[in-house]
Nucleic acid binder design. Sequence first.
DNA 1: GAATGGTTTAACCAACTGGTTAACACAAAA
DNA 2: TTTTGTGTTAACCAGTTGGTTAAACCATTC
Lengths: 215, 215
Amino acid sequence: MDDENIEKEAEKKENLDKTTEKQILSAAKRIFHVKGLDGARMQEIADEAGINKAMLHYYFRSKENLFEAIFNEDCVGFFAKLQELISVDLPLLAKIEYFVENYIDLLLKNSYIPAFILNEIHHNPERIKNVFIEKGIHPGNRFIEDIRSAISLGIINPIDPRQLIINIIALCIFPVVARPIVSTVLNFDDDSYTKFIESRKKEVSKFIINSIKIN
Amino acid sequence: MDDENIEKEAEKKENLDKTTEKQILSAAKRIFHVKGLDGARMQEIADEAGINKAMLHYYFRSKENLFEAIFNEDCVGFFAKLQELISVDLPLLAKIEYFVENYIDLLLKNSYIPAFILNEIHHNPERIKNVFIEKGIHPGNRFIEDIRSAISLGIINPIDPRQLIINIIALCIFPVVARPIVSTVLNFDDDSYTKFIESRKKEVSKFIINSIKIN
DNA sequence: GAATGGTTTAACCAACTGGTTAACACAAAA
DNA sequence: TTTTGTGTTAACCAGTTGGTTAAACCATTC
């Protein structure tokens, strides 16, 4: 491969992130995340992507198709990451610490995603089933086994593993999803609220482990 | 007041619950709760109320006005109830038990409200500020004092009272808001999921108190 | 340099949306 | 009985929406 070819390859690779299709997807993501399926306008997405509205239909045929592309990608990415975090090979209590810290971090870096997914599922609960069926995602099972075994080993107090999992996830997600309410009620500005959630990385795992650990 | 008048008064009172305005409000509530502001159609609300679409505008002038009537009523009712629950005169740990049990009960009986409020605030965060400013709602302050005093009395472990409040509310609300996801992931049917949340009335307060109580 | 085929555009369209209007119904007041 | 004001309706309207189309563009192939 001579210099010229190398150059061309590099150029191609650079442009991969800027194909029309990817531009549409990233613009659509930004609009859908903020306005939701019903609130988003195809024209607005086209403007955001800096292209003609007809292009959206050329690449994705319909608004519903474009939306599903975003929604499914977000869901798969989000649940895959969750699955990855709970699959790390650590003893239960350390795993909980690891999970909480990294999950809150993930949430802070993708703060629109949880509310977006929750909203859209609330308006159309069938969607989530499609994602799980088509994409074959089954988070949780591994974690349930870890909890059962920690209970029988006398490491933690008996608890329904499903209740514990819900508790862990609730404590991580809620402050992100309810951010506008909580920060208003507790008089936080944007920056101090982010710090407040940051501090939950330690606080939440302390709170959970205090509750379940046998001394 | 003779018999005839008494009869008329009774009739009036009965019809109070069935005035056109109330019919509109209850129909609009059902539609907005399920479809949200952007997804709801004025025609659909009119059909649901069994009246002409022009009546909606006769009574509420615009979709936004009608929506705000519902949204504000829901918010005020919801936060007022929350405030009532945390204002009961009990020692902290008993208060937490009392709160969790009654709050989860409230959530189960109004299962659309939390997701509805969260969704609409996510699409328009300004809304919540209007509610708090106009209606003068300030939940939480009383509870924060209770927590501080329980810490200094050595009843519970030191914890940022705001963190504890968020934890309590998160543990109650999340399973209701994320119901479609959780019940799909954990393979619940509708009935068993309701029972699962019912059982959290005891589980959650146990979980919290285990975590903070000094033995 | 003509033909090819994927990409892009401006103009267009039918259906829908929130909102208006003018006429009508009807009970209470005059 | 007439008047008046509130409640109600069907028909209508202008603006918006998702979606289409036919022509133009442009790099590649022959």
